[in-house]
Design a protein around this nucleic acid. Sequence first.
DNA 1: TTGTGCTATGGTAACGATACCATGTTAACG
DNA 2: CGTTAACATGGTATCGTTACCATAGCACAA
Lengths: 334, 334
Amino acid sequence: MPTINDVAKRAGVAPITVSRVINDSGYASQETRKRVETAIAELGYVPNVLARSLRSKRTNTLALVITDITNPFFTSISRGVEDTASAVGYTTIYCNTDESEKKEKKYLQLLLEKQVDGILLVPAHSTPDSLEFIQEQGASVVLLDRKVPNVEVDTVRCDSEAGAYSLIKLLIDRGHRNIVALGGPRETSTSVDRIAGYRRAIAEAGLADHEHVYYGPFTQASGYELTMKALTHNPLPTALFGANNFISIGAMKALRDSGIQVPEEIAVVSFDDLPSTLVVDPFFTVAAQPAYQMGQKATELLLNRLSGEAPQECQEIILPVEIIVRQSSGNVLA
Amino acid sequence: MPTINDVAKRAGVAPITVSRVINDSGYASQETRKRVETAIAELGYVPNVLARSLRSKRTNTLALVITDITNPFFTSISRGVEDTASAVGYTTIYCNTDESEKKEKKYLQLLLEKQVDGILLVPAHSTPDSLEFIQEQGASVVLLDRKVPNVEVDTVRCDSEAGAYSLIKLLIDRGHRNIVALGGPRETSTSVDRIAGYRRAIAEAGLADHEHVYYGPFTQASGYELTMKALTHNPLPTALFGANNFISIGAMKALRDSGIQVPEEIAVVSFDDLPSTLVVDPFFTVAAQPAYQMGQKATELLLNRLSGEAPQECQEIILPVEIIVRQSSGNVLA
DNA sequence: TTGTGCTATGGTAACGATACCATGTTAACG
DNA sequence: CGTTAACATGGTATCGTTACCATAGCACAA
């Protein structure tokens, strides 16, 4: 495989001149440029980015660390990231942590070894320490979707508390008094905030006695299981609140398997919408997060940091959620 | 940021010894190993993979070039790839070509510059030439999902022709005589094969006069549009065959918007299933491809090539599709 | 004329690791 | 006791590129 030196020899110039032509940096006469370009074409020369990055200390690579690309929410985020990054010549490495502390650690180490310029991180088990370590190693970080307390980091997320509050308020306004929350993990900030929103709405309506919260992973299996537990209540809840899309789908399956009609017998509201490309008849009343834009914004913020254009202080961008009312929330109770 | 030399100095050894400890290659006494490890920990040393790869000529990086990660089929493939690759210490770079020739070219060039060890490619506009160029540049290639004629390359895909044939046969057995195919792009091998399967079933049943094929991109919008065209037929078709998941969802929306009941008035069958995590009540009768395994197998094949374990000749692995009969195909016609 | 600044190009070192070769120490064996 | 082999460590060159500094021609202003 030809190197920059081979090209230089063939074009009758110094390697550095070839470099200047390739990168369009510094001066190069029209004629030299042409000679170099033909030499490149004739040899089928492909620059070696490893060498370039080693010398220049920039890899033009970002990393996106999410929990699971299989979740459409993260899929959309990833397209937002990828599109934004690739438009300015950056590549993106994706990592799925599956909410595992071990995987997260392993990937972060790997990414640092790869000298990525920046990391977009949906923290699963990140601590202030681990974030600081990343920054010490010269990589910029932007937190996505979730908070990590007591650190100075840029963050892009949605207002989970307000979104959940609105959903529950909507149910209460329709006459529901017995609403069960199917939460995510106890330690995950989005889950915590959504439950907080639920609590605020419940408390405001003077229903503190009717507060019922279950916790579990953000999975369909958990949604199913927690719903089955909720269905042992007497009297039955009149509405369920799923803290994310998978939980709610699991809940729906549990209700179906129990022969319970939605929304006639039990109403369901949920965090996270499903992309319209995947659903024929959207059914869920949801608090929809602008996932694509989250990825986009976070990437823009990160790129600004890298180019030194961003202001010194950390930014916390909080995007609004959109409440979309559909059938699953039903009508006003009789 | 500390380098291997800093570690070496602090541990009182030569850099190469540190290297041996890190990579667990060659000999190192228990005691030296310990000294090196503490030095690494104290300095917060992180090896620089760029330098390592530049010297060793291996990046331990694969690339997955797909058309759109937003399609659950490719999402599943990507998890198959990622899980298999990361289990043996490989990182994966994802690229979305969106079926664009320009993007595909741009990404392939970029990936070669990055010196990826291997590329898993869902060819959108790849030619034998472009594949050979990749191989000349020292990267291995495995084609995924689609064929490129007249090249020697490893391939992992499903039997599109047989899958489509089975779906159409199923409709014919239930009495359908007027089945419209909503195809993908004319040039894409999967689309071509699926239409071929459709044609074979139609011909076998002596229905050549009732052959109706439309072509368009693999998108929901196209599925919608083509269905609207199909609905202008007189008499109306009794069944539709969508060549991929997005097309079929678009078709369903068109039928819904036209006030046509599925399957009562028109039956629908489709290629590609949706993951059960995303659907409460699976409805489509489909030819399901084992997407995750496709990613897995392709990655294994690629890794075998890289380690030189694979036999010389190219392999073509063809996985079977599974016909899953659900409601959308309806009952036997009256 | 001298000085200044733009254009165009090149030489040398360095980025941070490992490949390759060399060397010394120790244990084991006939 | 000498030879062999496994163990343990190090020196030097090199991967392919760019940073940094240097040089030289030329136009133009003072």
